[in-house]
Design a protein around this nucleic acid. Structure first.
Length: 426
RNA sequence: GGUGGGAUUCCCGAGUGGCCAAAGGGGGCAGACUGUAAAUCUGCUAGCUUCGCUUUCGGUGGUUCGAAUCCACCUCCCACCA
């Protein structure tokens, strides 16, 4: 498999410094490349997934990923694509987040064949004067001011701290080239300016020619950043924040118009199949979405979890292609949907005592298990006709739940038709 | 350093003494319609023990029967000038 052609075909390449040279480089050599992540949160979400998938692809072609966690730059905040400054994290928060991210990336790439670096390691001891002397004359303010990301922020104001971000990122590239022979950087399209600065700096410092490539920005049909749903929240890779079932549902509910792109980016199915699947119509398109959801979930959470989510969703909403008419190389084809009855929606345990005596108000229960943010929201949900208890619409927001409402020790609650939790007694 | 302007609910942004839990838009949620899609239409969008109560309009204190709105001080931001 040719890495460059594959990246191109799947739509990963948005901008690149030199297409021909990059193609030749990736074809003829096993290179080290890097992708940076800002440790601004303790979990990745699907918005981070695009570079991760690209990294996976490159690694499978024999190239070596360097995962740079921006322990140092994360303390500053990248102005690119942001309208306002980010809050500054403490060193402890950054350290904690770095640990979490490392764990999550392990699901997608072979960690033992990747290098993890933290730029705090080389920035921690940098002395300001030394740094200025070493690289200060390699940067032109005029050039930096011309950068799109900087121009944008000039309107609303930009601190010197943030202005320096691209210098630091460029320096990262230089260090990685020097110490790890890193020859390429990948990143989101909002990183273009910073990445090009890095390419420049490496050439000026060491006369080495290095390259970079950006990925397209994924937007949903409203032009909003991709990866938010279910309450406007991010779809997290952390199962504590986003249960596997919900993760599966996120992909299952994607826009028709996005399907082809999503299959290309977030599954490992061959492009020929991706094209065939995304050309489906009617019930076929729903099968294609099941395949997308299954494959994406399988990558993030493992085959067993993906299978359970698929069966649970299918038993609630029906299967798109029960007869298996649509051919796919996905492992989903081998799942026996007769097993669907056994599988389950996300389940929450609640103490039995809460339901004894007077019982627990339904609205409070909704809030407690996280189906709504508060009891008041649950109340509004009931008033709007969107609350269901054991598949019956709830009409009275004063409804109280007692043990008698449980069937076989379980109670199914739904906020709308698609968000559901099963409550079991503890 | 000087002068002027500003800080409002998730975001943008109205509101300049009671009719303000606060217009409008965005975003989000739900309902209807559908294919668990999109588009469209409708309702909702601070919390609670909900015909009522509590907290919210940068912070603290004050004036007033009553303050997001007036006064004082403080913090932070922006613009122009130097």
């Amino acid at each position: 498999m040719n890495a460059y052609n594959e990246l191109k075909a799947r739509g990963f390449a948005y901008q690149e410094t030199d297409a021909e040279k990059i193609a030749a480089l990736l074809d003829s050599e096993k290179i080290a490349f890097y992708v940076g992540f800002d440790p601004t949160g303790s979990s990745l979400h699907v918005g981070h997934l695009l570079p991760i998938m690209a990294m996976r692809l490159l690694q499978r072609c024999g190239h070596k990923p360097i995962v740079l966690v921006g322990g140092a730059t994360g303390q500053i905040g990248d102005p690119s694509g942001k309208l306002t400054a980010r809050p500054i994290l403490t060193k402890e928060e950054v350290a904690h987040n770095v640990d979490c991210l490392r764990g999550q990336l392990a699901r997608f790439i072979a960690v033992d064949r990747a290098v993890f670096v933290n730029n705090a390691d080389w920035f921690a001891d940098v002395k300001y004067l030394d740094f200025l002397r070493e690289i200060g004359n390699k940067f032109s303010i005029n050039k930096m001011l011309a950068q799109e990301s900087v121009k944008m922020r000039l309107e609303s104001g930009l601190s010197f701290l943030e202005f320096n971000y691209s210098i630091l990122q460029a320096y990262d590239f230089y260090v990685l080239n020097r110490d790890y022979h890193c020859k390429m950087q990948f990143g989101g399209q909002d990183q273009w300016g910073n990445m090009v600065s890095g390419v420049d700096l490496v050439r000026r410092m060491s006369q080495n020619e290095v390259f970079c490539m950006t990925f397209p920005l994924l937007l949903d049909s409203n032009g909003m950043k991709f990866g938010k749903t279910a309450g406007g929240n991010n779809v997290w890779l952390d199962v504590e924040r986003t249960p596997v079932f919900d993760y599966y549902q996120f992909w299952r509910n994607c826009d028709d118009a996005q399907l082809g792109k999503l299959l290309a980016f977030f599954t490992t199915l061959p492009m020929a199949e991706v094209e065939r699947l995304s050309a489906q119509t009617d019930s076929g398109i729903n099968r294609a979405k099941e395949i997308l959801a299954y494959e994406a979930t399988s990558l993030a959470h493992g085959e067993a979890a993906a299978r359970d989510a698929y069966l649970a969703a299918g038993s609630k909403f029906g299967f798109a292609d029960p007869a298996g008419k649509i051919v796919t190389s996905s492992a989903i084809a081998r799942i026996d949907i007769a097993a669907a009855a056994q599988s389950d929606v996300p389940t929450v345990e609640v103490e039995r005592v809460k339901f004894s005596g007077e019982g627990l108000r339904l609205t409070s229960l909704f809030a407690e298990i996280g189906l709504t943010k508060s009891a008041s929201e649950a109340r509004r949900l009931v008033e709007g006709g969107g609350a269901y208890c054991n598949d019956e619409r709830v009409g009275d927001f004063n409804r109280v739940i007692t043990e008698a409402d449980f069937r076989d020790g379980a109670l199914l609650l739904k906020a709308g038709k698609k968000n559901m939790r099963k409550v079991v007694l503890k």
